[in-house]
Write a protein that binds this DNA or RNA. Structure first.
Lengths: 342, 342
DNA sequence: CTGTTAGCGCCTTCAT
DNA sequence: ATGAAGGCGCTAACAG
């Protein structure tokens, strides 16, 4: 019973044609109730399962969508993937996962692989804004394969995206720190070749500006998104005269490192120093000194990206429907920046 | 240029047969250098890309493997998936992700979907030990689709698995607590229909036994794997007379909850009370009061699972090669159970 | 070295 | 209501 049974096997068993079997299995109304029933029973008996590959080749639709992320083992991207999978599951789409590790070469390979695998859509969070991947992305568009950017987008006419308002996030975080009475606010930024980090930085600048505060060039540091980078950054910031008394970090991990270093130097948080991170990683609320952070609702982002994809697939023939959804980030105020919180 | 070009387009362009094109593209040695070169140039010119679907249908190999996990947005499973993806990437396999949410019905659906999609293998961490999925799993085996269990396995003859030695993990955690001078050690366990939790529990029991310690039935609680469950569990444990003075939790999240509650009640950790968790979630080391935990090396687990799969695919024709890899867990001693650590 | 043929499993026109 | 035929795109067996 290890052999796979096809519609021909069923046809032979019943002395009818494969076409009839196919129709019966697909509930074609032109098939008599009796043969339809018979076919289905025989299918059951022979343990028939439709070969999706054959269907896919014929129809040109694989019912697979590709999802490309820098890495899957980050809470943010994992949650997005969860959202995508959950939204697509009821529609019988499978999710193929690819990681770029922020490597553009890999990204291009991934897109090509997915295209060759005839996926019905590609959902991607790009590695950076460089233009090397323009060509392959154009290929996707030319092939009319639905393409959705999430979180990290490229600004391409006709291409949909789901992002959060990073500018607002940066603004809200900074305004909150200002409201806490801080004036010397440093900013730990990320790779400036990514729009998200630029936007968060811009939000920071605008908030400072709107409040009549001067931005100290030395207070702006570009760091990696990890604990050690935060420690290093805080070390150099605290050497400045005068040192900042607050930090808005574009990364929760860097924020954690900064907090560790600040405390290490005997400075009290939040009494003398405040920190706000970005991303609302699970650990930020677990800490005894919980960390204020900007939530990006990744689960929802994933679900919406999937929904946009679904709209796009169904409208494929009609006019191109570009849709750019921008989610609102939410500031979670915790102990690292306020005495009255948890 | 949105139309997909096939080998027939190339053949027509060059007035040769599709078969020759195919051979040239696949570097068949029987093809003359000149036509080979010509074909490749034309392919490039027409922007030809092989349709993997057609190849898959013909060869019966889709070059996709299915990975089934309870959820992707847990650090543990996400890391495993990362490992699998990284190991399979060089071998041109794509990874299709499915989530069960611990729902066996969903699990069965997922397996069927993957089978129908003609995946070349299934890597799965099952939802529980119940027998309802026996039938579909047998289908996988009958179809000779390589099947690998990771972390949560079923004991089936001929089926490979990659797990960690949960018994040893439970034993090591408990022995460590005993070494710290504790005698009344409670255990927060998980769903007993999963082998992993049973084994951790058994490890705990054996360590107690080996050290001549009595197990208090009231000290064994079955909890969910989240913070609130840990809080609730600790509350009831601390009401006991006498209360335990240490907890080995099968979940890091429950361990965190327990720690919060213990501290809440004014009991000092680690001076008066120790806690060891399981899983080595990222947050355990980030905490100010860092949490001792058992590491499961999920990244490695994923890579090994992928490697076992690769061996299996290649040996498909030869004898069935069952391989059961058991990884050694590692105890990370941190502040929650020791004064001399970080 | 290259062309012809056939088939992977399915569905869908076109007939009847 | 059903059958026959053809094709999705590719490759392998069989000719030459």
């Amino acid at each position: 019973m290890s052999e796979k049974t096809t519609i021909y096997d069923i046809a032979k068993e019943l002395n009818i044609s494969a076409a009839t079997v196919s129709r019966a299995l697909n509930n074609n109304p032109k098939i008599s109730k009796s043969t339809c029933k018979l076919v289905k029973e025989t299918a059951e008996k022979l343990n028939y399962k439709q070969n999706k590959l054959a269907l896919a080749l014929r129809s040109g639709r694989s019912n697979n969508v590709g999802v490309i992320v820098p890495r899957v083992d980050s809470n943010f991207f994992a949650s997005i993937i969860r959202g995508i999978e959950e939204e697509l599951y009821p529609h019988q789409y499978n999710v193929i996962i690819c990681q770029t590790h922020e490597d553009e070469k890999r990204e291009i390979e991934n897109i090509n692989t997915l295209l060759n695998a005839q996926v019905d859509g590609i959902l991607i969070s790009i590695s950076n804004m460089s233009t090397e991947n323009d060509e392959v992305i154009q290929r996707v568009i030319d092939k009319k394969v639905p393409l959705i950017f999430f979180d990290r987008r490229k600004n391409i006419k006709g291409v949909s995206s789901v992002t959060i308002n990073d500018f607002e996030g940066g603004y809200a975080a900074t305004q909150h720190l200002i409201n806490q009475g801080h004036k010397n606010i440093a900013h730990l930024s990320g790779n400036q070749s990514l729009e998200i980090f630029k936007n968060r930085f811009d939000g920071y600048k605008q908030a400072m500006l709107d409040n009549g505060l001067k931005i100290n060039e030395n207070h702006i540091l570009q760091t990696k998104s990890n604990v050690d980078a935060g420690i290093t950054a805080a070390k150099s910031l605290l050497k400045l005269i005068p040192p900042p008394n607050a930090i808005f970090s574009s990364s929760d991990f860097a924020a954690l490192g900064a907090i560790q270093e600040v405390k290490e130097q005997g400075i009290r948080i939040p009494e003398d120093f405040s920190v706000v991170g970005f991303g609302n990683e699970p650990f930020t609320k677990f800490m005894e000194l919980s960390i204020s952070s900007i939530d990006q609702s990744p689960l929802e982002m994933g679900k919406i990206a999937a929904k946009v994809f679904l709209e796009q697939v169904n409208n494929s023939e009609s006019s191109i429907t570009q849709k750019n959804v921008i989610l609102n980030p939410e500031l979670y105020i915790r102990k690292s920046s306020s005495r009255n919180s948890n």
